[in-house]
Design a protein around this nucleic acid. Structure first.
Lengths: 236, 236
DNA sequence: ACATATGTTCAACAGACAATCACAATAAAT
DNA sequence: ATTTATTGTGATTGTCTGTTGAACATATGT
């Protein structure tokens, strides 16, 4: 499930620190992007709408406080200020400006993580409504993503989680070639290592369960050197 | 609990500091009560349900961390830890235990106020989910959250607190995958340690009571590697 | 056409994760 | 303080998924 990971934008001009935090948080299973410039930060926050923003105060282009003020009215996620400035009045100003936390450098990664988690616990945000279609029909095949049930000629087929996810993805774009790379990424949420053949296996097991011949597959075709393709017309 | 003044409970054994903060915050138009003992704190938090709690860690009777853990599942307001302890691990532990902020003494009143305000801002805007809907119907299943009664084909099913909370949460978002992490967090109020299997057990017991087959669950499905999902269509 | 390199399938195995039992620890009730 | 109910834990079993290697298929170069 790709949607699972939370995204965090780190706005920080010290690239060493920035990538240090990035690495640490990536290990904790967050999706991290970084931005060194203050004047680009506001734009990117609104554009990417990350689940959380880590914001430095002293930045080239525009200071963090202004960024915070500028985005606060439209960006609803938590903003965590991370800065070396010692002044208490900055802290007060930032918090009043709409920041949710103010942490002084240097900070232990473990502490930063705990604070991030506390903010997420409170925010609990996920207003992204999945308005896309929940049920797909292709002749004798029916796929229901809210109950995760697949029927073939009205008969229920029991698929595993991975098999279902792959089928749903392919069926979402019938007639289009999807690379292993892309399938892997969409289904697992992280990148393909190039040697993994789990997708091959999932396809193989899917074909068997969907009664598609493997030597001459009509329903899920192999595009040699490119990937796989769901054939819409094959289910009648 | 009216719209008027917000109430804050200060749990702090140093009576000088305690009344200092009390005075300052009263000037800012908050309603303050104080409690010096740790072992009485949990009781008073649940009894008075203040809008926010300021909690010291080193307390007579019972330490603040335990207080935090004990009340977290039923007390939903912000908890701010205010302590002289310097140890980073205490900070991490407190935040993971469900605290919302961790401030080191000594702190300027102005800073404390700013942090309190930031917490209130979040608490207010955080979506209280079930203010409207108190009863859910899914075919033969009926869940009443005001009386905490569950009926299956009109027959009353007796669920434990945890089981009910988990069921209610899942049924609040049918067709959506909820991770153990998320379920644990919502139900207990603090973070999952990664080895705990209480949610698995709750699900297992729920399935049994709701007469869902365990080898091939139709009503509460397992999404391998991700979590669980409530199937709306399975109750007809 | 032939050999060679590269991409794909599949069976069998191994490791990771989940379900469940029986029991221990904890909390609640008496 | 004792009993009872609820929740968490260790061990076991089963299920899902990824890996390996051999066989097979498709493309490329000579």
């Amino acid at each position: 499930m790709g949607q699972g990971k939370k995204t965090i934008l780190i706005v920080e001009d010290d690239s060493i620190l920035s990538s240090l935090i990035k690495e640490y948080l990536e290990k904790q299973d967050y999706n991290i992007s970084t931005e060194p410039r203050g004047d680009c930060a506001a734009y990117r926050i609104l554009e990417e709408s990350p689940d959380l923003v880590i914001l430095d105060l002293m930045l080239p282009g525009k200071d963090g406080l202004s960024v915070c003020r500028d985005v606060r009215s439209s960006y609803k996620g938590p903003i965590l200020i991370l800065t070396a400035k010692e002044d208490d009045m900055d802290q007060v100003a930032a918090l009043e400006m709409g920041a949710d936390d103010y942490v002084k450098k240097p900070v232990k990664p473990r502490v930063l993580l705990a604070r991030i988690r506390a903010l997420f616990r409170r925010a609990q945000s996920s207003p992204i409504v999945n308005s896309s279609e929940k049920i797909k029909h292709f002749g004798i095949l029916e796929i229901d993503s809210s109950s995760r049930v697949v029927r073939l000629e009205k008969e229920k087929i029991s698929l595993t989680t991975l098999e279902f996810d792959v089928l749903w993805l392919l069926a979402s774009e019938p007639g289009k070639i999807l690379s292993r790379d892309h399938i892997f990424n969409s289904v697992k949420g992280f990148d393909w290592d190039g040697t993994d053949r789990s997708i091959d296996m999932a396809i193989s097991r899917l074909r068997k369960k969907l009664k598609d011949s493997s030597e001459n597959p009509l329903k899920i075709k192999t595009i040699w050197g490119s990937g796989y393709l769901f054939v819409e017309e094959a289910w009648n």
